[in-house]
Design a protein around this nucleic acid. Structure first.
Lengths: 364, 364
DNA sequence: GCGCTCTACTGGAGCGCTCTAGTATCGCTT
DNA sequence: AAGCGATACTAGAGCGCTCCAGTAGAGCGC
C-alpha cells in the first residue's frame, strides 16, 4: 500500500500531513493542549498558546476538518444547495459565508445541475454531516424534503413548503409587486403587462400580486399576463410577441431581471426606445441590472438580509428547542433607475429618483 | 451536553444518525461486512449484499463521509475553487462533477468572493483533505500556490504558472484569436479593434495573439487595443469611447462574451446596427451568448473538455508517479452567429454560417 | 502547616468508518 | 480421510480529532 500521497515525496516533496500530535511533539506539550488552543478554548497559558500557534505555522499544520467533524458531538456544518448557474444564488452564497462564520459554523456547498439532481446534491450534504441544509430556490419534491427533515433542519430560501416543517425565508413579493405597479400607475401608465416566471420560486406569488395590485389601482380591465420563465430568452420571446401586435403596452413588469433584460435587448434591437416607448421593471436587482448601460428599474430583493435570515433561522432552530416551520419575510425595495418614465404623451418630465424606503425585516 | 441534535427528537423526530453498526445489527452481520458492501468490495455473498442494502435503506443509513475520509488512506476528494459569480466557472463546475464521479472521486466546492479571499477558500479545501485542488481562473499569488503544492496536487484552469509545478489546463488562445481575426479579415474588415481583458486569466495571451494575427494579415497599422476587463461594464465603456470618436471601426474583438455583450448593448442603444454598422466577436461562448436575441459570434472554449482535462490531470498526477507541470491545451472553435458580417459597402451578402471545425484536444 | 480554590495541563475513550489479518465453512481432489 | 483453495465472513487496530475526568502545582487565608 502506498503512503497517503502516491509516488511518496515526489518532485515537490509532498509529505504526510502534519497532525496535532506533530505540533504537540514540537512544542513539548500534549495533544489535548494543542486541541484546546486551536479551539480557542480556555485553559491554556498565553505563552504556551503562542508557542503552539507558532510551531503549527512552522510545520504547516491545518486542522483536519474530517476528524474534527467526526469527533465533535455537534458538527457545526451548514450545507448550502445552489444552482451554480443562477446569479441570484451566487449573491446569496457570498452573503451566507460571512454570516455562518460569525456564528461559528462551517459551510459546505453542493450544486445541482442538469446532470446532477438536487436529490443527489442534498444526499452529499447529509453525507458531510450537515446539521442544517439551506436550499436556494429548491425544486425538490416536498416528500423528499420531509425525509430529509428527519436528518437535518431544512431552510428554504424563496420557495414555501407550508405544513412540512421546512423553515422558510422569502421576500414579501406582494409588497414589491405592489410598489412597482403603484409607481407605474403614478407615472400615468395603465397598460401594464406582466411577463411571469412560470413555476419558478416566487412566481405564482408575483403573478397573483400583480393581479391584485392592478385591481387595487382600478386597472382590472388592463390585466394581462404573458407566460415566461426566469431566463433572458423568455423576455425576448415576450418582446417579439408584443412587437408583433398592433402596439406595445406602455409598461412591462417582468418576472425577474434576466427576463427584463432579455425583453430590453429584444425591443431595443427593434428600434423601440426605453423608457420613452415602453417602461420596463425587473425583479431581484442582480448585479448586472445596476450597470450604467442597463440601469434597470427593479424590485430589489434584500439578498444580505435573506442570507442572514436563512443562517439565523437554521442556527436558531439547531440551538434552541424545536419550533418548526417559522417563516421569515423580508421587504423588498423598488429601485428606480432609467428604464421607467411617464408614458409618451403625458407629462414629459420623469419624476425624480426617489430614495427607496428600506423597511425593517419582519419575522412572523 | 445535548444529544447530536438539540431538542432531542423534536417535533419532526430527528434522531441520532444511523451508523454501519446499526445496519449490521439489523441484518445480524458484522460492521466489516456492511462496510464491504458499501464499498462495493468483493467478499460478500449476493444474498447478504442485498439484505444489507435493504436494511440500510429501511433505517435511512447513509455513509458518513467525514468518517470515511478519515479512515481511508486516500481521501479521493477533489477540491474546486470557483468564483461563484462567474458564469464560465459555473459551466466548468457542472462538467467537473460527472467527470470526477466517473473516476471515483468526491468533489468539494469552495467559493471565493469579495469578502472571502481565495487564500481562505483554498485553506478550507485543504482542511477537507483534498488530494488535489482545481483552481478556476485563480487569482492567488504563485508563492501561496507553491506552499499549497506541498499538501496537494494543484491544477489551474485558464491561468498558467510556469515553473511552479502547478498543472495547467487552458485554451489555445492564439488559435481562437487568430481564427476570429482571419474570419473578420476574410469578410473584408481591416479596422478591427480589440477590447482587452486587463489582467484576467487568458487576457495577456489574447492581447498578444490579436497583435500577432493582425500582423499576419498585413494589418499592423490597424492594431488598436482598448483597455477593458471581463465585465459588461467595460464593453459599454469602450463603446462610448468609440462612439465619441469620428467613426466606428468596422469590427470589434472583445476580451470575452460579457464585454462583448456590454458593447453590443451600448451601441445598439446609440442606434448603431449590428452587424451592419459594426461586427462584434466575443470569447468563451457563455450560455447567454447563444440566445436567439443576442446570437453573438464568439470563440467557444471547450468547457467540457477543460473540465475533463482538469480532472484527468489531477487524477493522473495522484495515481501515477510524480511528473509535475504538465499542461493540457484545448482548441477553441469559432462559432459564427449573427453579430458579424461583411463591412458596409463591400459584398452585400454575408457568408453562409460555416460549421466550425472541431479539433481534437491535444495534450503537450 | 493545612486545606482550599484556580489555573494549566495530561490521559484516554470515543466519533464512524477502512482495511489487514485472520477464522469458519464449503466443495473437491488425491 | 486428510489436504487444499475458495469463498464468506469477523476481529480489531487505527485515522486525527474532541472533550471529559483527572492531576500537578501555585497562591492564599487562617
Amino acid at each position: 500500500m502506498e503512503p497517503p500521497v502516491p509516488g511518496s515525496d515526489g518532485a515537490e516533496g509532498r509529505v504526510r500531513r502534519p497532525t496535532m500530535e506533530d505540533v504537540a511533539a514540537r512544542v513539548g506539550v500534549s495533544r489535548s493542549l494543542v486541541s484546546l488552543v486551536f479551539r480557542d478554548a480556555p485553559g491554556a497559558g498565553p505563552r504556551t498558546r503562542e508557542r503552539v500557534l507558532r510551531a503549527a505555522a512552522e510545520i504547516g499544520y491545518r486542522p483536519d476538518s474530517a476528524a474534527r467533524v467526526l469527533a465533535r458531538s455537534r458538527s457545526r456544518v451548514l450545507g448550502v444547495l445552489l444552482t451554480v448557474r443562477n446569479p441570484f444564488h451566487a449573491d446569496l452564497v457570498e452573503a451566507i459565508y460571512p454570516e455562518a462564520e460569525r456564528l461559528g459554523y462551517d459551510v459546505v456547498l453542493s450544486a445541482d445541475a442538469p446532470t446532477r439532481s438536487s436529490h443527489k446534491a442534498i444526499e452529499t450534504l447529509l453525507g458531510h454531516r450537515c446539521e442544517a441544509v439551506i436550499l436556494l430556490g429548491p425544486t425538490a419534491r416536498p416528500s423528499f424534503l420531509t425525509s430529509v427533515l428527519r436528518r437535518a433542519v431544512v431552510v428554504s430560501v424563496g420557495r414555501r413548503f407550508p405544513g412540512t416543517g421546512v423553515e422558510t425565508v422569502h421576500t414579501a413579493e406582494a409588497r414589491g409587486i405592489r410598489s412597482a405597479v403603484d409607481y407605474l400607475t403614478a407615472l400615468g401608465h395603465r397598460e401594464i403587462v406582466h411577463i411571469d416566471g412560470g413555476s419558478n420560486a416566487g412566481s405564482p406569488e408575483r403573478r397573483r400580486d400583480y393581479r391584485a395590485a392592478m385591481r387595487r389601482n382600478g386597472l382590472a380591465d388592463e390585466i394581462r399576463v404573458l407566460r415566461g420563465d426566469h431566463t433572458e430568452e423568455s423576455g425576448a420571446v415576450a418582446a417579439h410577441q408584443l412587437l408583433s401586435e398592433d402596439r406595445l403596452p406602455t409598461a412591462v413588469l417582468a418576472g425577474n431581471d434576466r427576463c427584463a433584460m432579455g425583453f430590453l435587448d429584444a425591443v431595443s434591437r427593434a428600434g423601440v426606445v426605453v423608457p420613452d416607448d415602453v417602461s420596463v421593471v425587473g425583479f431581484d436587482d442582480i448585479p448586472s441590472a445596476g450597470l450604467s448601460h442597463i440601469a434597470l428599474t427593479t424590485v430589489r430583493q434584500d439578498v444580505p438580509g435573506l442570507a442572514r435570515a436563512a443562517v439565523e433561522l437554521a442556527v436558531h432552530r439547531l440551538e434552541n428547542s424545536a419550533e418548526p416551520g417559522r417563516e421569515s419575510v423580508l421587504d423588498p425595495e423598488l429601485v428606480v433607475r432609467e428604464t421607467t418614465a411617464a408614458p409618451r404623451g403625458t407629462t414629459a418630465t420623469r419624476p425624480p429618483r426617489h430614495e427607496p424606503d428600506r423597511l425593517a425585516p419582519s419575522v412572523r
